[in-house]
Structures are given as C-alpha cells and as structure tokens.
Amino acid sequence: MNYENQQVISIAKLYIVPTPIGNYGDITQRALNILKKVHWVAAEDTRRTGVLFKYFGIKARFFSLHNYNEQQKIDQLITKLKYGQSIALVSNAGTPLINDPGYHLVNRCREIGIQVIPLPGACAAITALCASGISSDRFCYEGFLPVKKKSRQSKLTSLLEEPRTLIFYESTHRLVDSLRDIVEVMGKDRYVVLARELTKTWENIHGASVKTLLEWVLEKDIRHRGESVLIIKGYKATNTSSIVEGMRTFILLKKELPFKKAVTLAAKIHSIKKNILYKYALEHI
C-alpha cells in the first residue's frame, strides 16, 4: 500500500503542513491529500494561501491565525479540535513555526493531549544550507537579525565565536545593512553565502568573503531584492599564542591610551581581529 496516497484523515488532530517557498511543484502529495480533507485550514494569510489552493483546486474553510492574533484565537481552534474537527496549520510559505506563527497552538495541543502530526516539506533555511557548500553537520538557525543597528551588532557579537554554521533570514530592505554589520563585527574575511529567491525564477546562490559579497550585492539592485537567506561560516579559533601576545601589547598600550584605541592598535600589530581581542580583553582585565 502507498501510504502517501492512502492517507487517512483523523478527527481531532492538528496537522502541520509545509507549503512551497516558491515553486508549486515542491508541495508533496501527502500535503495535498490532507489539505483537501481536513475540516479547517489555519492560515497565516488566507488570501495568499487561497491563491495556492485555487491553483491545486482545493476548497477549504479558512481560519486566520497570525502573529498578532494567535494567543487570542487558540481557544477557538482547541474547541474545534475537541469537537472532533481536524485542522491543518499552514504558513505563507515553507514549514509552519519556522519563524512563523503556530508555536502557541502546538504547545497547547500537546499540553492537553491533542495529537500533533508534522509533515516534512519545504524550508528555506535547510534548502539554502544544502546548497551553500558550508559545513552542514552542525548549524544554528537564528531567524531574522534585529531591525536596529545596535541590537543587530550586539546579536552578531554574541555569535562571533560560534563554531557552528549560522543561518539567518533577511529582508530586502535590511540585507545591505546586515552585511555591513557582519563586516564590522565578524571581519571582512568571514565567508558568507547569500541565497535569494530560492526555487523561484530569479533564484541566485552566491558565496564570498563578506566584504566581497557586499560589494557584489551593491553592484546591482536586483541582488538585494526578494527573500534572502544568509549562511555564515562558523568561527575558527585564532591561534591562542597570537591573542596572548596581543594582550601583552594591549596592556602596555593601555597605560598611555584609551581602552578601545589600545585594543585597535594591539590587534593591528598582531594581525588579530579587533573584536576578538576586545572581547578577550574585557573578559581578562
């Protein structure tokens, strides 16, 4: 028996159903079967999901569930489940809950014993990682970087020495600013892959040192349009002896210079990234 083609829809269950991130051909047969048979579809944007459903000839009863109403609407959905109605949770694109609403609903269902059935499917972060050429055995998904520069740099600084591959989503309007902050915080040589408009007509995956990547993006407007994923190579520790020597120089310079100036000069003398020496100095002074 082909399980996917014989999918039985069970009552009083919540199905987490991924939808395509661009190419409609990426939806699974199992997802289509479930979406056609559930009693309700809880959608982040019913109009956007409606376009997808019209393409596949799916008629559904929609329930709007997004970041701004999720906690207020949970009880209504739970009531439907308790009355034996099945619900499919979908987001605008990709796998629900990955930087999209649904966590609170899933958490409540599990607390009260309603079965949650997840389906595998499209996810921009994983799709980009697979094509990046950067180590994929250990990675951190960090969602979107903060909107404000100070918070964004603070976030990047906290991940400066993270050895695992880093994955971020970024918007059209903040991509250039984020790349500039990566240059400033992580250094111009950190290797970054930009994957934009994945599975769509203008899909593009480009990797380089972050300074070179920034210059490449700035060459053409189209290179920072659309939905983007940033894959950042994990931190590789600097030779400890270099840091020790840098600290010795820093301590001598600090007697005559302000803290930041002393760090900057010591880092330059010993070819150490300024942010690494700065953090080390704060922890050891």
Rank of each mutant, 00 (worst) to 15 (best):
A237Y: 07
V229K: 00
K220I: 06
I222D: 03
G234T: 01
N239G: 11
G246C: 12
M247F: 12
L265K: 07
G246Y: 14
E256V: 10
K260R: 10
S271A: 14
V263D: 01
S241M: 07
R223P: 01
L257V: 01
F259Q: 10
T238K: 01
H224I: 07
T249L: 14
L230A: 00
V244T: 14
D221E: 13
I272K: 03
A267T: 04
E245I: 09
V244C: 10
A266C: 03
E245W: 14
K220S: 09
G246W: 12
S242K: 09
K268L: 09
H224G: 05
T238C: 02
H270K: 11
V244I: 15
I276M: 12
E245Q: 12
S241G: 07
E245C: 10
N275I: 00
L230T: 02
I269M: 03
I276A: 09
V244G: 07
E227T: 11
F250H: 08
N239T: 15
L253M: 05
K254M: 06
E227K: 10
G234D: 12
D221N: 02
V263L: 07
I269S: 03
L257I: 06
A267H: 09
E227G: 01
S242I: 12
L252E: 11
S228Q: 14
I222W: 08
I222E: 12
H270G: 02
G226T: 04
L252H: 11
R248A: 13
L230S: 02
I272Y: 00
R225Q: 12
V263C: 03
I272E: 07
L252C: 03
K255V: 07
D221R: 09
T249M: 15
S271E: 13
I231S: 11
H270W: 07
L277C: 04
V229I: 11
S241Y: 06
I232E: 01
E245R: 15
K274S: 08
I243T: 06
F259M: 10
T249H: 08
K255A: 10
K254D: 03
K233M: 13
T249S: 14
Y235L: 04
L253D: 06
N239E: 15
I269P: 13
F259H: 13
